[in-house]
Design a protein around this nucleic acid. Structure first.
Lengths: 243, 243
DNA sequence: ATCTGTATAATGTAGGACGATATTTTGAAG
DNA sequence: CTTCAAAATATCGTCCTACATTATACAGAT
């Protein structure tokens, strides 16, 4: 095995990887008081999804300061927020590094997501299907079904996020609403997209099944369906981790 | 004579609650580089457990700066970290306020905690009991048992935290280890101490039962025991919320 | 070649400053 | 006297500078 080492600072160990320093000064952003940190967080996530930043890349305060035209204070706060979301890894005196999920960690995340989303489905099924949240959930499902089964890209990702968000909202559990968005399932898709593609073939049917159980008020069945859906991804990843 | 310091943003919504400012200068702390923020977080939580801070109290940066003898930077970072843990509520331009849970929110939190801790117990039971994490778990259990059944205060809270942390560590799921500490079950105890006291009578037995199942490798039983333990608190709270 | 000490770079924190904003207080109008 | 509006005040959000601490890189010694 090659060294596992975390190339500490400047990837001197692998000078090959030239992470192109951002070039776009990004026109100093100033969305208003209190919004700077959130903007940084959102933008860094966006760039990560867009491939502009890649897992493993180090995020240096000075560099971010220059990129966004803000001072170190908000930058540090944004990095702390990202660390709380498990998107970056903070090491004392070493700064922030975009997290790279080992496949085992991805499985761990999915296992937790499986439980929480299963819980959400169960709770949602116990709510009135015709409530405002229920109707929103129905709308999100229909939106999802407008996509072809093999659709890729951010449009479907957004629709899926909305689907889960609506499911969570319908569950009507404040703590669940707080905690579920911090489980960064999407990071897994960013990193393991190719491995998971196959499991996507049945996803629309899965969503349908979950929704039907929810609307029928069958809590247990809704939970089972949700868990089964995520279980496909887990199984798929496991088959690669054991190789 | 100038009137009392005119509390700036006195909780206008509830002016009744008299909050006394802390007085202990707390001797400037300097645990080393990188440790300042964590120390602040831990100490604020500790004071909350000890009743020195109470839910609803506002935490002002200037005041914390004076109390701990650190600058605003680390204070702000600590407050952000506490917000990520849902211990304080941050409002733009209004600062931090120790969170007050409505009883329904407390129940929501316990429901989520029930699932996650149940998951932790199940996973832990599937691990080797003699592993390093297993031994640590055993140690934490023994430590817990040294407390009298009706113990109150931060010492027991810390021991219980360690117990759950050890259980989680034994579960060997990185995502669970990240997410479970952000579910602040103990805040509920701080706020609803009187309502939950009765359920405390059996807690030591509950912990024992969980640990036994874990060490015996009975995953299902471990999960059930963990869920049952938290279910007591949920039931208790529900009986008050429906009144 | 490996080890060791120094130089360099980046983080962690301090402290001061200023604009923006929420709250309180003051003042005016009814 | 009550109600509403404007001024006063306190606190937050951000910027800036500075310095100590610490990890890394590099050069020199063994």
């Amino acid at each position: 095995m090659a060294k596992t080492p975390a190339p500490r600072r400047a990837a001197s160990a692998r000078p090959d990887r030239k992470i192109k320093a951002k070039q776009a000064p990004a026109a100093t952003v100033k969305p208003g008081p209190g919004g700077t940190r959130d903007y940084l967080v959102q933008d860094i996530i966006k760039r990560l999804y867009d491939g502009e930043y890649e897992p493993g890349q180090r995020l240096q305060e000075t560099q971010l300061t220059a990129t966004y035209g803000v001072s170190r204070g908000p930058v540090r706060e944004a990095l702390n927020a990202l660390a709380a979301m498990n998107i970056v890894e903070l090491t004392p005196q070493r700064g922030a590094q975009l997290r790279v999920l080992r496949i085992e960690e991805a499985i761990d995340t999915l296992v937790v997501a499986q439980n929480l989303i299963g819980l959400a489905a169960r709770l949602a099924a116990q709510q009135a299907p015709d409530s405002k949240a229920g109707q929103r959930f129905r709308t999100c499902l229909e939106k999802l079904q407008t996509f072809k089964p093999d659709t890729e890209g951010s449009a479907f990702a957004v629709a899926r996020d909305n689907f889960y968000a609506a499911l969570t909202a319908m569950a009507n559990n404040t703590e669940l609403s707080r905690i579920l968005p911090t489980v960064r399932v999407h990071l897994i898709r960013v990193q393991f997209r190719s491995l998971l593609r196959i499991t996507d073939s049945t996803r629309l049917a899965d969503y349908q099944k979950i929704a039907e159980a929810v609307f029928a008020g069958r809590a247990r069945q809704a939970e089972t369906a949700a868990r089964a859906h995520i279980d496909r991804a887990i199984t798929r990843l496991k088959s690669f981790s054991s190789e």
